[in-house]
Structures are given as C-alpha cells and as structure tokens.
Design a binder for these strands. Structure first.
Length: 239
DNA sequence: GCAAAGATTTGCT
DNA sequence: GCAAATCTTTGCC
C-alpha cells in the first residue's frame, strides 16, 4: 500500500508495513463500515514506550446508526456523553456501562451524523501476557471490597477468550473513558486501527441481531446489525 | 432533586 | 441459570 494521507513518511505499522485503516471507509455508510472492520487489527502501544504492544484481530462488532436507532446512545439527540458520535469518523468513543465496564466504539459516518461501531470481540494476536495482566488487575481491584476469607485465584481463561466481549476488549487493552477522542486512524495514536495483512484472506461475515438492546423495541431490537466472523474462538457468544 | 435502568461480567446456587 | 456489583445518564416530580 502506498497511501500517504496526513500520516507523514517514516512511520510503520506493528509489522513494518503501511496498514493504517482508511478513514474513508469509516466515513461511509455505517453498515458497510462495520463489515469492513472485521479482520482489521486493534493496536495498543505500551504506555511510556516500555512493555509489550497489544494487537487484536477484530471478529465481532455492532453498528449503532442515526438518531432514529432507538438502541443508540444518540437516540436522545446530542448530549455531553454522546457528542463525539456526531463528530468526525475514525475517532474513539468510550463509555462506562453498568458502572463498571468500559466499551470501545469507533465513530463512523460523516460529521453531523451520529453513528459508531461497538468493538465486541477481538482475537489476541500479540501482547497476550499484557492483556491478561491488564484484565487480572481490574478483576483483583474489584475483589478488593469482598471478604478477606476469599483468596483471589489465578485466572485460567484461555488466550482466545481474553477479549471475547465488549467489556473484556476494553479491559485487556487498557481502554477507558479517557481514550475518548483518540484518532484511531492516526499512525501516531497509542490506540489505533490497522488493516489486516495483505496476504490474509478476507474473513467471512455473518449478521445477527444486536445483544442487550431489548429496551429499544421493534424494529430496532431485531435489526441484524451485529457482524461477526463465523467460527472464531473469540466471539462474545458461541456461534 | 430523586429514582431507575443500562450496548456487561463474574461467581455462586 | 441467576443475581450482584457499581455509577453515570436519563426520566419524572
């Protein structure tokens, strides 16, 4: 790939190739962008330049598009929380759910149109030890408030399940609400997207209703706007 | 101002 | 299989 854009020369992706995820794809129609995001890489650079770089292959996303989508945070119009969804595509939108879990979204659509893609699951590609450590740290912090007669046990979850859910993606990649606004299409961003390796086949794509949006009612709760790679061992739910 | 529910995960029954 | 944990945002008084 010889794309230049605003990136500037000399920068290279995690594998030494130019694989920055194209903003144009995210700026287009959100449902198409959702399917294009499958197979792409989520990359997290170590803080302070030390430690492992974490890389995950995106295998499950959900689309939330437009003011009319009653399942979307934008359904009430522009508010302080969802404002970033109305902004430029390619930017991170991270929110807190149930008072404890963070969810990473990629803003899509033209500026002014509120839409985003929830990253629900990724397959660990690199930095597995750091992912596991980040997850474990959060888990132990949560157990802090429990009775002392409970000794924390080692987390035996398989590598493939480390980021098999929206809250787990954020936890294993060290993502929280302070990441909101990061430009995921910027090669210099510590949290960003890259395209799949050129020699990697495009993944199959399956569609299904979104999860946990019954409150939206018909027809929004049944819209097949969850897209995933069939057969992946890292899906949030077995499929 | 207060009550309720939420784009979830975990651990116990 | 179910309920708890936990806090921000939203809905209504």
């Amino acid at each position: 790939v010889t794309e230049e854009g605003s990136r500037g020369p000399g920068l290279r992706s995690a594998t030494g190739e130019d694989r920055w995820f194209p903003r144009d794809t995210l700026a287009g129609e959100t449902i198409a962008a959702a399917q294009s995001l499958l197979g792409a890489r989520l990359v997290r650079d170590p803080a302070g330049g030390a430690g492992e770089r974490r890389v995950g292959r995106i295998v499950e996303v959900e689309a939330y598009a437009g003011l009319e989508d009653r399942a979307s945070h934008a359904r009430m119009g522009l508010t302080p929380r969802n404002g970033i969804m109305f902004g430029a595509p390619g930017v991170a939108y991270v929110y807190l759910v149930y008072g404890m879990h963070h969810c990473l979204n990629v803003v899509t659509g033209a500026a002014g149109y509120p839409a985003a893609l929830l990253v629900r699951a990724v397959e660990p590609v690199a930095g597995v030890a750091t992912m596991r450590a980040a997850r474990e740290a959060l888990r132990l912090a949560r157990r802090r408030s429990l009775p002392e007669d409970r000794q924390p046990v080692p987390n035996l979850v398989p590598d493939a399940r480390l980021a098999a859910g929206p809250g787990l993606v954020a936890a294993s990649f060290g993502v929280n609400v302070t990441c909101t606004g990061l430009d995921l299409c910027d090669a210099a961003s510590p949290l960003r997207l890259e395209t799949a390796p050129a020699d990697e086949p495009r993944p199959d794509v399956a569609a299904a209703p979104r999860i946990g949006v019954q409150y939206a009612g018909q027809p929004w709760s049944d819209m097949p706007w969850r897209f995933y790679v069939p057969g992946s061992a890292s899906l949030s739910r077995r499929a």
